[in-house]
Amino acid sequence: MGASVRRIAAMVLRYWYLLRGSWPRILELAYWPTVQMIMWGFISQFMATNSTWVAQAAGVLIAAVLLWDVLFRGQLGVSVSFLEEMWSRNLGHLFVSPLRPGEWVTALMTMSLIRTLMGTIPAALLAIPVFGYSIFDMGLPLAAFFGNLIVMGWWLGLLIVALILRHGLGAESLAWVAVFLLAPVSAVYYPVSVLPGWLQAVAWTLPSAHVFEGMRALMFEDAVRWDHLAWATGLNIAYMAAAAGVFLHFFNVARRRGALLQTGE
């Protein structure tokens, strides 16, 4: 166990040095969440005077965009850290060491959490003086929303890593576009009820839809919807187990085929 923790910590330290040594990477982490928060903040201010629905809960769109960025950054944190190993042709070097796949994945997820916090916290803090809204006013339910969204980002990232291992860097664009395929049915900015009936059924199979419905219930009704949180948690557990199985399968296939040594830019 001690050796395992040391190997995970060593990989996290490796990714941290890569991030710390590049100011454009650090700037990019906070840039997009902040720009989106400002844009949606002004949209929210406009709609508050022209939309009864938005006026009922100040900051609902700002909260939505900040929580959506947790999901996006969580997924991107896993995918990009993996892609950096692919671009530098370093996978073969990693796995001739005692590093195990599970330890590597744990390091990727830890780095994803760090990158997500570095990106979203500055935007959330800036929203307080600029728009007079603090997402932290949600209290403890915010931790549940955050946890479910970042775990969803992790299993999405694992699936993308598995597909890149299977198909090579030709599939790397999935790291940036895959999560947006789920945005229309995640009900980020509108209730699930506005979707067509058949799409509502699809939406309820996603943890993100339950999280955003729970967020709106908290903001509009001042009620914690434990049923939505329970569904989101249960779905995340099931999807994480499935994603881990898919990842391990394609990782073992790539190792047998020698793709860990051959794949690169």
Rank of each mutant, 00 (worst) to 15 (best):
M1R: 14
M1G: 15
A3K: 15
V5K: 14
I8S: 01
A10P: 06
R14G: 00
R14T: 08
W16H: 02
W16V: 02
L19K: 00
L27F: 14
L29Q: 08
P33G: 10
T34A: 13
Q36I: 01
M39K: 00
M39H: 01
W40A: 06
G41K: 07
F42A: 09
F42M: 12
I43C: 11
Q45M: 14
M47D: 10
T49Y: 14
W53S: 15
W53T: 15
A63R: 01
L66Y: 01
L67E: 03
W68P: 02
L71Q: 06
F72E: 10
R73C: 14
G74I: 08
Q75I: 04
G77I: 06
V80R: 02
L83P: 06
E85N: 09
N90C: 09
N90A: 14
G92D: 08
F95K: 08
R100E: 11
P101V: 04
P101Q: 02
E103A: 07
A107P: 05
L108F: 05
L108Q: 05
L108C: 07
T110V: 13
S112P: 02
P122M: 00
A127T: 04
A127Q: 07
P129A: 12
G132N: 14
S134W: 09
I135S: 06
L142D: 01
G147D: 11
N148L: 05
L149C: 08
L149S: 06
I150Y: 01
V151T: 04
W154T: 01
L156K: 01
G157S: 04
L158V: 04
L159N: 04
L165E: 00
L165R: 01
H167E: 15
G168N: 07
L169Y: 13
G170C: 15
A171D: 05
L174W: 12
A175K: 05
W176T: 09
L182M: 14
L182V: 07
S186E: 07
V188I: 15
Y189L: 15
P191C: 11
V192A: 15
V192G: 10
L195I: 09
P196V: 09
G197H: 12
L199V: 10
Q200P: 11
A203I: 02
S208P: 07
H210D: 04
V211D: 08
V211G: 00
F212P: 07
E213G: 12
G214P: 12
L218G: 09
M219D: 04
M219R: 02
F220N: 13
E221G: 03
E221T: 08
V224Q: 10
H228V: 02
W231E: 04
W231G: 00
T233L: 06
A238F: 10
A238W: 11
H249D: 00
H249S: 02
F250M: 09
F251D: 06
V253T: 00
A254I: 02
R257P: 07
R257H: 12
A259M: 05
L261N: 11
T263G: 07
